[in-house]
Design a protein around this nucleic acid. Structure first.
Length: 433
RNA sequence: GCGAUUAUGGUGAAGUGGUUAACACGCUAGGUUGUGGUCCUAGUAUGCGUGGGUUCGAUCCCCACUAAUCGCCCCA
């Protein structure tokens, strides 16, 4: 038997319906925000990701799916969405669009060659947005509001929004130096991983899980104290806008994103959900002011975020949020003879074109089996064909809940169904998806 | 890359060094029910992840492999 590759999933049955529902909410929300859907390639030149990731190089070589195409060109399955969007922004000269900023959203699969664990697969889906071509603080706030509002619409509670500012290049460099010097002589008190991080990426010591309660970390110099004036003013403005948007947030100076290209605002959304694995960060994002230029575009700033749909749906499931999807079928046509089956074929087509969800048996089950199957599918009405009725231009309907049977004249069938089924749907609209 | 745990039928699972591998659900057939849902009867793993080893004998002990789950690292 051939089995699926490690770290991949088959999205099936009810889970698939839940994802469809979440995706629909995403699309609707992005319409309101007036962000455009963008789809970039699933694979890009390896160079693109090498450059965006920057200094922390070993990430790329170790954790991406790399391959040579038949022309021996190095290619990489995208590990994230930002790089492709920025590449597209430059390649399509969107920076010249008079209606800047460019506001786009993507929703697609990403690939990282990692050891799978709870909330982490090798193939996973991210919904994300990017706003390119403005430094306006309102955009920072607006972008943070998107995942917050998405969760609100979905009914997910227990979220924590954490924000921080890394400041501009000047502030960032200065802070890194201060931090390095601070940790240098205290490194013996930290965990082995942190020792390695000191040289590689001292910022990440700040969100170490092992040492998070140690005094060394608690007394470490804070990024916010090293922001220069312009950066600080900017950060305060972002917070003002967040308050206007009525978003609860917490400034956490330990929020550091892993990559070099971020500056100014960075943020994360944490799920405080019981039963969640150790990977409880639902979404993260931030501003990046140098990346567009580094990839050969003009000097423009942008900001974005991405949210993992797998983790989002996991959180929704744990919180027992009702992801509204259609759980039943309207009608199941029950037949006995071949003549009746022929008629069923005609009828099923008519009914479907008139907007009903209709099923019939395809396994030559006997009547009993057909009823069973209809029940499995949560049928609202059984439509029981019999030659005698058909000759009289009539059809027998049985309500699966009330057990009430009615003989309906065929000419009035649609009218009857609209009365009885569509009204029911209107009463509980959550049944729609 | 490192570590822990697990691996029995369509599903959830119990179990033992030795003739027929519990139980439940599901499924199939038949009976009852005015045509299903209730109820009754029967059937439903020659097999316990794969390959070796120990043993008179292994699903149960040992080793390797594979896979799953969770954690570390990393987290774009």
């Amino acid at each position: 038997m051939i089995i699926k590759p490690k770290g991949t999933i088959d999205l099936l049955s009810d889970d698939a319906k839940k994802w469809k529902y979440v995706n629909r909410i995403i699309d609707e929300l992005m319409e309101k925000y007036n962000y455009n859907y963008i789809r970039t390639p699933l694979f890009e030149s390896t160079d693109l990701f090498k450059r965006t990731v920057g200094e922390s190089t070993d990430i790329v070589s170790k954790e991406t799916y790399d391959f040579l195409d038949r022309g021996e060109r190095p290619m990489t399955l995208r590990p994230e969405g930002t790089a492709g969007v920025v590449r597209s922004f430059i390649e399509n000269k969107m920076y010249g669009d008079p209606s800047l900023p460019i506001k786009v959203y993507y929703n697609g699969t990403m690939y990282r060659y990692e050891r799978p664990q709870s909330g982490r697969d090798r193939e996973f889906t991210q919904f994300g947005v990017e706003v390119l071509g403005t430094t306006d603080e309102m955009v920072d706030a607006e972008i943070i509001s998107i995942p917050v509002n998405l969760c609100k619409l979905l009914g997910l509670k227990g979220l924590k929004v954490k924000i921080n500012s890394l400041g501009d290049q000047e502030s960032k460099d200065k802070y890194k130096e201060v931090l390095y010097n601070y940790f240098k002589d205290k490194i013996e008190g930290l965990c082995p991983d942190c020792k390695a991080r000191l040289e590689k990426n001292p910022l990440r010591i700040l969100d170490c899980k092992v040492d998070k309660d140690s005094d060394i970390l608690k007394n470490a110099p804070k990024m916010l104290d090293y922001l220069n004036e312009a950066s600080l003013i900017r950060f305060n403005k972002v917070q003002d806008y967040l308050n206007s948007l009525e978003i609860d947030f917490e400034v956490d100076s330990n929020i550091v994103r892993g990559l070099d290209y971020y500056d100014h605002t960075v943020f994360e959304l944490e799920a405080n959900v019981k039963g969640f694995g150790s990977n409880n960060v639902l979404c993260g994002g931030g501003r990046y002011s140098k990346l567009i230029e580094e990839l050969g575009g003009p000097s423009m700033s942008a900001m974005g975020f991405a949210i993992g749909l797998g983790r989002l749906v996991m959180a929704l499931n744990l919180e027992e949020v009702d992801m509204k999807y259609k759980k039943d079928v309207d009608l199941f046509i029950i037949y006995n003879t071949e003549v009746e089956k022929q008629y069923a074929a005609k009828l099923i087509n008519d009914l479907r074109l008139n907007g009903f969800v209709v099923e019939m048996d395809y396994l030559n089950r006997n009547i009993k089996g057909q009823f069973k199957q209809a029940d499995r599918l949560n049928t609202k009405y059984y439509l029981i064909l019999s030659n005698d009725d058909l000759i009289n231009n009539e059809i027998k309907l049985k309500n699966s809940k009330t057990k009430k049977e009615e003989i309906v004249n065929l000419d009035y069938l649609l009218y009857f169904l609209e009365e009885n089924i569509e009204n029911e749907d209107l009463e509980n609209e959550e049944n729609l998806y």
